[in-house]
Design a protein around this nucleic acid. Sequence first.
DNA 1: GTACAGACTTAGGAACATTACT
DNA 2: AGTAATGTTCCTAAGTCTGTAC
Length: 752
Amino acid sequence: MSGDHYHNEDQINCGSRVNDSHKHKDKYKEKEHKHKDHKKDKEREKFKHGNSDHKDPSDKKHRDKEKMKHKDGSTDKFKDKHKEKRKEEKMKSFDGRIKKENGFASPPHVKSEPEDDFYHSPRHDKPLKRERDDDNDSEFKPKKIKTENDKKAKKRKQEDEDFKSKKTKNKKGEVTDGKKKAKKEPEEKWKWWEEERYTDGVKWKFLEHKGPVFAPPYEPLPSHVKFYYDGKHMKLSPDAEEVATFFAKMLDHEYTTKDIFRKNFFKDWRKEMTSEEKAKITDLKKCDFTEMSVFFKGQSEARKALTREEKQKIKEENERTLQEYGFCIMDNHKERIANFRIEPPGLFRGRGDHPKMGMLKRRIRPGDIIINCSKDSKYPEPPPGTKWKEVRHDNKVTWLVSWTENIQGSIKYIMLNPSSRIKGEKDWQKYETARRLKKCVDRIRAQYRDDWKSKEMRIRQRAVALYFIDKLALRAGNEKEEGETADTVGCCSLRVEHIKLYPEKDGQEFVVEFDFLGKDSIRYYNTVPVEKRVFKNLQLFMENKEPDDDLFDRLNTSILNKHLQELMDGLTAKVFRTYNASITLQQQVKELTNAEDNIPAKILSYNRANRAVAILCNHQRAPPKTFEKSMQNLQTKIDAKRNQLSDAKRELKSAKADAKMRKDEKSKKAVETKKKAVQRIEEQLMKLEVQATDREENKQIALGTSKLNYLDPRISVAWCKKWGIPVEKIYNKTQREKFAWAIDMADEDYEF
DNA sequence: GTACAGACTTAGGAACATTACT
DNA sequence: AGTAATGTTCCTAAGTCTGTAC
């Protein structure tokens, strides 16, 4: 695995964050303004398709109709449908929501397994119980919750050869470290990673929790806060008023200036109005929400201005809620829940150009909620006078609570915190899969290179797509329902308009320029030299296609993943992202760390390695609003420190001269003191300079996402141990909790 | 094979808390 | 002490991928 496998250097410089004005829908308009801020425009203009016989776009309609022929003689099929859809739905996008309104969705059938076969297992000869403990099932009911480490750290039978050797070593070791007692966590940390895992899809044996915390009920506005329509005061009915406040709260946000947002909001708002209101309020432009907006701003000011005691009180109240609802009991252990609060009602804020932005996200009530818990647990109580939609006992899933959301009709869940066993195990397993890929990636690469020559179009497309996924860490790119979401793509869903081919560019041959919106409408821009065969294939794939045709018309994620599954057990497209991210970190950290550097400099190296990964994965952020200013401040500080240093040096010099003359103890001591001062200041200066570099380089790059989701934490832990860097410098408290397994098990020679 | 539901991971930004600075 | 900068947590949208039914 060589570092030059990637070619992302210019991605960051060129990649500018795409704002919401970016419209893929209006593809013709699009063409003109899409790249307006882009320096590469000229080259683009010059470039015409490599094939001189490329059809004139004017015969497009005709062409659209006929089935496209491929070299392998096959015709285009399933993908056409989506394209047609995309075009059509541009027209009609807004009415989609009714069909999936939650209230009408028939409840997904509850599997209430018969008593005798509750823990239904595909293989009845094999007990599902975890093997770590010998006794009966009742062990999983919390007669008393285990708070100390399990005595027996049995071996996992899984693939993790690496840990088998270490796993048992310090099962007691950590018991001695009682520093967390100082905090409010009297319990010893449970080392789930030293225990057996479930097999056969059972996720837990016992689960008990208190259910969700609902959003606070709507509090009507005080009567002095008025709403005006067409300049006249109007008292709104409570329902209409509530929805109005959602809009009022966002008045300062750019969202409220957008047509789609306003249109969607107004449509949904009207549904909440009484018939009189509906008759009167017909134009959003005539609505004046400013008093409401002012009122809410005042409220948040007031909240900030609370006295220390009052703030303390609120904090305590929150803490109580957390203690009561923020934890569950899963198989003998108290585990933290991630999101125990139900999402409050409000206006939907999609990312990018979302066709549904501004729609009303309705209030979730107990009747919408499905509870999942053990049969033999104490069920959560619905609020007085209400009922849950359903209580089920499905131990093949990890969620505690679910409901159906009304914007997309998708299901939302309450699940456990990343520090929990159930999340941690999965995370660990993810990295193990990536490490297995490491062992066979050469073979897979050889194979896809071979497939570039295949007689079959579908194989070639698969192979080129896989090459992109591997080389550029692109996401798989599932098809999306058109008109339901922002128009974003991943690898398999790339369209012809998203790439440009340059037989020669900036002295390099066979350059591909990518420019598309990925997940969260984050722009991916990259120019990459590719192998000649890839280039030729791309030309072939693009032949006789329109800009909005699929580049890989014979491929989708399901085909790709099926293929990957055959190459390696558990292999899917996203494993490549994990693998390439982690292997890059490992290489970079090795390459960049200087043994003789001090700790801050080493951490800079680490951050740079992390940054290389973030760039690879295209993890961007909006440059902080205060970026320039804070950079300036830092520079000022650096200058001041420089002055301070030269002063200190001067003083040292004169002290030395002084000591030379007097030769007494006192002046010698003074020299020592001055020396120390100089040293200290030098260090401080260095630290500041490092900080400045780090920050500058980090302007538009988000490190957090890769750190949290792509980098095998054991690589980082090993690096810390190797160089004597406290792990706190790399991971904050939350991160340390999430990666407790890695911190515990990895030693300095861990290799990904 | 395709459409859809479901479950779960990944993602950036907002809100909030803490620390550093004046 | 008050304010600004920075770090952390919360929030929830937007992906991936699997399973199932036709």
